[in-house]
Simulated assay, not measured.
Amino acid sequence: MIGAGVAGSASAIALRRIGAEVTVYEAYPDPAGPVGAFLSLAVNGLRALDSLGCLEAVRAVGFEVDRQLMWSGRGRRLGDVPRGRAADDPLRSVTLRRADLVAALRAEAVRRGARIVVDERLGGPDGGAGPADEAVAGADLVVGADGLRSTVRRMLDPAGPQPAYAGLYGVAGVARAVPEAGPGRTFNMTFGRRGAFAHLPAPDGTVWWSAQIADPVAPAEIKLGAEELAELFAAEEVPRRILGATERIDAATLFHVLPPVPRRQDGRCVLVGDAAHPVGAGQGASIALEDAIALARALRAEPDRPTALAAFDRERADRAGKLARTAATNRSAKTAGPLASLVREAVMPLVFTRVYSRSTDWLYDYRPGALPQ
């Protein structure tokens, strides 16, 4: 296994559940460290966690969110839908810090008997062969769970597609409670003039927020603080007030897109998670969890490894591709110009809530299946 983030740790658990010997090589000293900010798991991701045996551990370090509200920059409500679930689903979406999710998954992987080796990357420290390269050369199965800039993906197809800037960059942080943030257990998305602003009140009284700024040119470095962000969202009252109460900034990142990857497995190596299909739309972690279970089930059902990997690839490609198209639509909404924004404000209240169920039930109704105990 290459990569001990969400996809790698989940795959390690799933493969141990079917009896495989698993060693995970991670490039960073602490893959559960403070990388990124918060993320949300929709109910399809929670069902995958349940199959892995980690649902309660993850719930314990996050909090449930019931509703998702969509707002115009002028404060007009554009939509009100269940957050990450069908309306009649008893499960509730869970929001938590990425580091806490990775830590919970890693702990379960180790408890199940996986070996995790940190601070080891393919190519070694000077580009030569290191322990990870030797392990890859001798492994029966190599799982590339090493993210958007996957080294394993380049091994499979050196001429394959590369990530490109998506026209958005993001900054995330934590603010003090402000009355304008609204009630708890609610995720809010405001479509502003310069981008989108998400926030949700946390149980500890703080407000977790994420600003996604539209810019056709990728900044060389993201240096924006809360004051500069408040200026960018000066026309949107609620985001401006939350940014004005900010206590700390947790993450800043460029968003990227990746064209469809034509070669995701070769009979011995296989890609999972963002290495295979960075889907976006708030589903990156959930799809990685699904991948882990689907891979283990395919390998258990079919003794011939190349046949099993081909079956896994076919099963996951259609679902991930459909979600990637949804993510592209979401990105377009966040980078819309003034005219498109006016059209959205006029039309969205009339249609969004009505069509939401029809457009998302296929995603949230997914059942990953069971794994052996």
Rank of each mutant, 00 (worst) to 15 (best):
A86E: 13
G73Q: 03
D80Q: 03
R76A: 09
E108P: 12
R74W: 01
R112C: 15
P90A: 08
A86H: 10
G84C: 04
G73P: 00
R92W: 10
R77T: 09
V94S: 12
G84T: 02
R112W: 14
L96P: 03
G113A: 05
L105F: 08
R98Y: 05
D80I: 00
G79D: 03
L91E: 12
L78F: 03
A103Q: 08
R83Q: 13
E108M: 12
R83M: 15
S72F: 06
V94Y: 05
V110W: 13
A104W: 07
R92Y: 12
V81M: 01
M70K: 01
V102A: 10
W71I: 01
L91P: 07
A107V: 07
R85I: 01
A87G: 11
V110K: 13
A109T: 06
G84D: 03
V102F: 07
L105N: 09
D100P: 06
A86W: 09
R106M: 14
R77K: 14
A103L: 06
M70N: 03
L105G: 04
R112K: 15
L78D: 05
A87P: 06
V110P: 10
D89V: 05
G73M: 00
L96C: 05
V81T: 04
R111P: 12
R97Y: 07
L91S: 08
L96D: 04
V81Y: 01
E108N: 14
D80H: 00
D80F: 01
G75Q: 00
G79Q: 02
G75T: 02
V94N: 10
A109P: 08
S93T: 14
G79L: 02
A109Y: 13
D100H: 14
R74F: 06
L105H: 07
R106K: 13
D100V: 03
R97W: 08
D88G: 07
L96A: 04
G73A: 02
A109M: 10
A107Q: 12
L78H: 02
L105M: 12
R92A: 14
L69I: 08
R92F: 11
V81I: 04
V102W: 09
R111M: 10
W71Y: 01
L69M: 05
R77V: 08
A99F: 09
T95N: 13
R98M: 09
D88N: 12
R112L: 15
R112F: 12
R85G: 06
R98D: 05
A109C: 12
R112H: 15
L96R: 00
G113F: 10
P90M: 05
M70L: 11
A87F: 04
D89Q: 07
R77N: 11
L91Y: 08
M70P: 00
G84N: 10
L101I: 00
D89R: 08
Q68P: 09
P82T: 04
R85A: 10
T95M: 14
G84I: 04
V102R: 04
A87E: 13
L91T: 10
M70E: 04
R83H: 14
